[in-house]
């Protein structure tokens, strides 16, 4: 299979990339790792006259803490993310999600920014960004703007990026002392997308009640989803078995899975209920230990 013909650019500066994007408008497409885009081009589900490969743009593949945030450059590969020592040590939820994305070969090319920008409700990082209340730095000709992870993906494969804009960085709040997070993904086979997956991030108060909860869901709605009601339900409570079970029930009620290749909607609800309960308990335990 071959993609249809296109003209190719590989700028090394953000400024050049933005100029090319605004010059060619709708006929142009950004490519980062190409691990979602190239398959689409090969199947001719998508075709563009101009491909702007941003993988050589400088300065967008760093991971570092600055101020209140962990800053991840959009071009950081998922492999670089999973190998990063700081992430392994302090951002377990992120590391856990990274090692479960696709397979090592895909992770060597696929980028953090591409994983989020693709808008695929089955991609794993958007739910983590939602659970951790991350912000996204978007770069355009007019400058930079910050958006909440929640409002970035607006529908299946659709984002709030405007024409000529590029996702530049992902900003994750640095975890508070008593906080715990995890990512649980149920899949049918190694290297696959999930049947359902849950990201849970909890901040505990001194008396071990939940001060703030973040819950993001993968593969169970047309877009990555925040479980708002469940978050509100557990905030202010301590996690006991009965609380985790009720929270999981609420999470399932907030999901809108559809029947597809990965299973029936009913099956996905069952899977989600089980992993959601497990994830809340696990995140709480981790919050206690820290």
């Amino acid at each position: 299979m071959h993609p249809s013909s296109f003209e190719y650019f590989a700028p090394t500066k953000m400024k050049e990339a933005l100029e090319l994007l605004s010059k060619y408008g709708e006929e142009a497409k950004i490519m980062a790792g190409g691990q979602s885009l190239i398959p689409l081009l090969k199947l001719r589900i998508a075709a563009y006259s101009y491909i702007i490969d941003i993988s050589r743009v400088e300065g967008l593949n760093k991971i570092r803490e600055t101020g209140d945030f962990l800053e991840i450059g959009a071009l950081t590969t998922v492999n670089e993310l999973e190998e990063n020592e700081l992430v392994k040590e302090k951002y377990r939820i992120l590391h856990e999600a990274a090692v479960q994305i696709a397979d090592p070969l895909v992770r060597n090319r696929g980028t953090v920014g591409g994983n989020i920008s693709h808008g695929d409700p089955s991609n794993d990082l958007p739910a983590v960004a939602i659970a951790t209340k991350a912000k996204l730095e978007i770069v355009g000709k007019k400058g930079k703007r910050l958006v909440d992870a929640d409002s970035f993906i607006t529908d299946s494969f659709t984002t709030s990026l405007e024409e000529g804009e590029i996702l530049g960085k992902i900003l994750l709040p640095i975890p508070k002392v008593s906080s715990g997070g995890c990512y649980i993904k149920q899949k049918k086979s190694a290297g696959d997308f999930s049947v359902a997956a849950v990201a849970v991030n909890l901040v505990l108060a001194e008396d071990e009640t939940i001060k703030s909860a973040g819950i993001g869901l993968t593969s169970v709605a047309p877009k990555p989803t925040r479980a708002n009601k469940a978050e509100r339900y557990i905030e202010g409570k301590k996690i006991y078995d009965s609380v985790a079970r009720e929270a999981a029930r609420i999470i399932v009620s907030e999901a809108e899975p559809s029947t597809d290749f990965y299973g029936s909607a009913d099956y996905k609800r069952k899977v989600l209920g089980r992993i959601a309960e497990e994830a809340i308990n696990l995140a709480f335990e981790r919050g206690l230990v820290r």
């Binding site: 190239i38 090592p104 070969l105 895909v106």
Partner: peptide, 9 residues
């Protein structure tokens, strides 16, 4: 680094 050459240009 090991990559899939059918998914690269």
């Amino acid at each position: 680094k090991a990559v899939k050459s059918c998914t690269m240009l």
